[in-house]
């Protein structure tokens, strides 16, 4: 009489380290390595759908509050004979309008926006940032040389046009770039900066410039496109 086999327990787990599911053949000359932990999956309904509904509700509530508290602007009827002073485009074009103050229209209105769109489209195809190699991970001397000259060149170019709202962010981003060019160890922020890649530096520069230009155009430009404080923007006639 043989003893009956004990009943098998089926164990379920998502943790492959604790509960490996697949048995692999490990050759004696290789070590068993774990490529990727198995991911947890959840049902889209209700987990994702409900969250989306919540986002929608929050947006509707926030917009309703804004609509109750702030009125959309409405000025006098359009008059082709009378240009209001100052006359401004919607906020997302004010950076462009600010550029028009410094550059000829064909440069500010056509070349710059065109370059931005082309650069955006090219990003995924030019293999930008695929390897995510930090800027300062290679030959530091060479990186210092070309990135330094790029920053100086850009600054001089914009300074020729007296476009200080671009020169200053350029120099700031350049300073941040070079602050981690050395080998020294530092706090969390320094370690974070050391990991930043070149495309990320460029994008950060672009966002900073766009933000500065938009803020100046929105809040600091008064009659005759002169620099004013926000509270003096519309002087009483």
């Amino acid at each position: 009489m043989s003893t009956p086999m004990p009943p098998l327990d089926l164990l379920e787990s998502n943790d492959p380290v604790a509960m490996p599911k697949r048995v692999a053949l490990v050759r004696p000359d290789a070590r068993a390595t774990l490529r990727r932990t198995e991911e947890r999956w959840v049902m889209t309904f209700p987990n994702l759908i409900l969250r989306e509904a919540i986002v929608f509700q929050i947006v509707v509530i926030a917009l309703s509050l804004a609509a109750l508290l702030f009125n959309a602007p409405l000025e006098g009827i359009a008059n082709p004979l009378e240009t209001p002073n100052p006359s401004k485009a919607p906020w997302y074009f004010l950076g462009l309008q600010e550029l028009l103050h410094y550059f000829p229209p064909v440069v500010a209105g056509v070349v710059f926006p065109g370059l931005v769109v082309v650069a955006l489209v090219v990003i995924p195809y030019a293999k930008v940032n695929l390897s995510a190699r930090p800027l300062w991970s290679g030959d530091k001397q060479q990186t210092r040389l070309w990135s330094g000259s790029a920053i100086v060149l850009l600054s001089v170019l914009f300074a020729v046009f007296n476009c200080w709202p671009i020169v200053i962010p350029t120099l700031l981003v350049g300073a941040a770039m070079f602050s981690v060019s050395g080998d020294g160890q530092g706090g969390h922020f320094r370690q974070f900066l050391q990991k930043v890649t070149l495309p990320e530096w460029i994008m950060t520069w672009f966002i900073l410039v766009a933000t500065v230009l938009t803020l100046i155009g929105t809040f600091f430009r008064g009659p005759g496109w002169s620099l004013v404080w926000p509270w003096n923007m519309y002087p009483h006639a």
Binding site: P86, S87, L100, W225
Partner: peptide, 19 residues
């Protein structure tokens, strides 16, 4: 003078300064 982007002209129409 132009109110939009601050261009200025003399009475002959020549650009004094501005974009």
């Amino acid at each position: 003078a132009c109110p939009c982007h601050g261009s200025r002209f003399d009475v002959d129409g020549n650009v004094v300064h501005g974009p």
